[in-house]
Amino acid sequence: MTERKGPYELRLRVNGEERAALTRPAETLLRLLRERLGLTGPKCGCENGDCGACTVLIDGVPTKSCMVLAVECEGRELTTIEGLRDHPVQRAFSAENGFQCGFCTPGMIMNAVALVRAHPEPNEEADRNWMGSNLCRCTGYEGIRRALAAARAELAARAGLMPRAKERP
């Protein structure tokens, strides 16, 4: 186990890029992303793990970045909302009004991206378990529910249209 004291340089892989930043041992991943790397997509909604607005993917696992120390992420693969580009889940949230004020949306989308990857088929119980960790105060969840359905439908259609990797020439 490495011991860290005082400011030090942390190297991370974020959204496919190698990034370095000066950090403190007590700094959370959320603050590092927002304040040192300029990735303000993840939001500080509670910094207590209750609202999910700060959700990012760490090695593909949706994680509340306010509950993780930056130092724990050395050598991990991080994805923030800025790392998605026109993802079907993003398009579905846009088309289905899965947001209003948008503040919970980056975290909500990151969690949903991981959800539809783990559960490509509609699964109410899984949806409740996964999405229940993110709060939205605006939508009453109706648009988010529609967005999940639309994203799964698009991903399924895409899977049907595109040959699987092993079948490709």
Binding site: T40, G41, E82, A95, F99, G102, T105, P106
Partner: peptide, 11 residues
């Protein structure tokens, strides 16, 4: 929508 679902909107 693009700014909000892209995490680009600056509050």
């Amino acid at each position: 929508a693009p700014a909000k679902t892209g995490g680009a909107l600056r509050y």
